[in-house]
Write a protein that binds this DNA or RNA. Structure first.
Lengths: 230, 230
DNA sequence: CGCCGCATTGAGCCGGCTCAACACTTGTGG
DNA sequence: CCACAAGTGTTGAGCCGGCTCAATGCGGCG
């Protein structure tokens, strides 16, 4: 929590799907009550069990939400990008405690809005609640999907599924830019870095893809890949 | 979908936490637009991919939500009891497709409300949306917890955790009534019936609990059990 | 009473984890 | 600009938890 920036936060508000349907005046109003906070890489935004009643909106950078097991192993729940929000405990319970850890995985700036302010906006602009509901419902679907995958699909299928959901096309090459370190990807997919590494090698041997840099993987034949995984 | 019951559905509405804050008149209004449907045991309410735009409210009985992997294995997502609702796709997207299967695991009666009707109520009574949001947020937390468990806790710890969350106390005996068949419990915990069976035997050998009937397990020492699992 | 479906127990196997050594990449200071 | 250190990724060997498949036990229902 390096410093508070007191100039306009409207940029931050404008960025966010849950607010960007409002007009300028309304956004200014909300921006008034938001305060901006900066985090450096690897800094924790909050920990499991922390009491909190604010909504966090990512302005810049990336945040990783993860959970810790008894035995100390991590499970990455999701990665937040600019425009995403978190801290929905704030909007639901009067006494909210975080159930996960949140860590900045790059230089990150966020906006915080306190529950008492947010509640006013929710009353005044019902569309905001609709959008929050819509977002959380999507996340629920994703979370349920992740449960199923981690539970019953073999690691290779999980990796392929992950790749297929992150493909980008560019000048007739399909490739994937990994949105996190291989270590975090491992904890996201419920496996270990070693296993990820081995599976990538195996796919490469089978001529299905090719590693370029640490963060970039080229896919030769997506359909073939999807076929193999089933 | 055996038959439609056209007498009052207010009972059904009154039962549900998302509506029961309304007054009688308001509940009657909503009940008008609900229609009741009965299902027999093992009947499917909907399948993955079905298009649908209704909210389902459990009036009586129990419903199991589950998902199917490529390889045909099941993952039980959750069990719904009277007063629970599902089909939140309806409240969020204009074109909603189910992402899971739903099956009645006992004689079950439910109320259905169409999206177009629900939308009206959401506009008129914002508290309803608040409650739906609150419910879905809780489910999201549970789902994330389930992901973590299935992913990194060993089976025994998952079982113990499940037991500890379902304990009931009665005349200085702590016991657990399993809310579903052992087969479904297995798919809920991301394991197999055989493994569950073995683990129960193992716990029993260690004098930590005792099976009475198929559905009822007595716990001798919950604290010890929790200690063992960590 | 006898059947049928579910639960239990056993034997064997295999995917993926652990631990450990080595390679590569990135950042730091001389 | 290079040398080195620290962190991250890769590869190998070995093990083990839990799954699979199959046989047997058991309780509920006709």
């Amino acid at each position: 929590m390096a410093y508070h920036n007191h100039h306009s936060h409207v940029d931050c508000i404008r960025l966010v799907p849950i607010f960007n349907h409002l007009n300028d005046e309304q956004m200014h109003l909300i921006a008034q009550s938001a305060n901006e906070v900066q985090y450096v890489k690897n800094e924790l935004l909050f920990r499991f069990g922390d009491k909190d009643d604010t909504l966090y909106i990512i302005n810049n950078g990336r945040v990783r939400i993860y959970s810790l097991s008894e035995s100390g192993r991590e499970q990455t729940i999701r990665i937040l990008h600019p425009g995403d929000f978190m801290g929905e405990v704030a909007v639901l319970q009067t006494e909210g405690y975080h159930s996960n850890y949140a860590e900045a995985i790059s230089e990150t700036s966020i906006c915080r809005i306190h529950k008492k302010d947010l509640d006013q906006y929710l009353d005044r602009y019902p569309e905001i609640m609709r959008r929050i509901l819509s977002d959380i419902t999507k996340r629920l679907q994703l979370s349920e999907k992740q449960t199923v995958q981690v539970s019953i699909e073999p690691v290779e299928a999980r990796i392929i599924d992950f790749l297929s959901e992150n493909v980008e096309d560019e000048k007739n090459h399909t490739y994937v830019t990994l949105p996190m370190s291989k270590k975090d990807l491992a904890t996201y997919l419920g496996t270990t870095p070693e296993t990820i590494s081995r599976k990538f090698s195996s796919l490469e041997e089978r001529g299905l893809n090719k590693r370029h840099t640490q963060k970039c993987v080229e896919i030769f034949d997506l359909d073939e890949l999807l076929f193999v995984s089933s």
